[in-house]
Nucleic acid binder design. Structure first.
Lengths: 133, 133
DNA sequence: TATTACGTTTACGTTAACGTAAACTTAGTG
DNA sequence: CACTAAGTTTACGTTAACGTAAACGTAATA
């Protein structure tokens, strides 16, 4: 079963060290159950870890990932909480969309650089290492 | 004129400290000219700084930004250099595209969270603070 | 049962990316 | 020309996100 999950398994599964996982717990991003002294990780824990690591790849800090994880969690039950949550989600989405635009801009520029590079190669003619039939 | 640019001007323009700008120079990301002892920043320098800061927002390290800046620069003149450059650019583009996919996934999930939140609010009915006509 | 593999806590070390402060030089201005 | 504002170098401090190591517990296995 997949509910069985020791810290070592989780570490290997995600390609991180156990230290890293314990560190995330220290920071309040994970709270695995305990069987005796040992930590045991549920599916929910794995999902959280996946979110954290994706956040990292996108350049989010652990605190930011923590916020986002909270947003995904089961929403509160009173109106005010829901309103503020909705507000936060909207804010984050805006931030992420801005990021997306910047990423697209960067990708465009990379494409241009690639073209310039190809052009330079073409200009060079076959003077060196043509290697084409 | 825009070619006149002291470190203070640049710092204010981009909302960073002069320390930050000097630090980037230390790291080899900028190399302003000197008028006497003072640094003077050209348009090219400003462009580089803009790229660096955008990279930061996207979660790139300074080293990664440095690489990218090199890619944008005027390409070398021999075949082998051009080939390896092309290779590097392609690699970086792949990385950035992967990032884009992850960002999109995260945005999707945020949208779902937003919907769940709205649904929860709707379920709540008007029991509290309806505030709608 | 002794060994080995994995787990636990505690604590100090490390790197990137700056912040902060001191001590000094230089340019413009009343 | 004295003063002030901005620049310069040098150097130590700080925070986030772990790495690394020690010293110890426990469970399965030969």
């Amino acid at each position: 079963m997949n509910s069985t999950c020791t810290i070592g398994d989780l570490a290997e599964e995600f390609g991180v060290t156990t230290r890293t996982i314990r560190f995330y717990e220290e920071k309040g991003l994970l709270n695995p159950s305990r069987k005796g002294q040992r930590r045991h990780y549920s599916l929910a824990d794995r999902t959280k870890l996946r979110l954290i690591l994706r956040g990292k790849r996108l350049g989010l800090s652990l605190d930011e990932s923590a916020e986002i994880i909270l947003m995904y969690g089961t929403p509160g039950n009173n109106r005010k909480q829901l309103d503020t949550l909705l507000e936060k989600i909207g804010q984050k989405r805006k931030e992420l969309q801005a990021r997306r635009r910047e990423l697209d801009a960067m990708l465009d520029e990379m494409a241009q650089a690639e073209n310039k590079c190809r052009a330079a190669i073409a200009d060079l003619g076959q003077q060196q290492k043509p290697e084409t039939s």
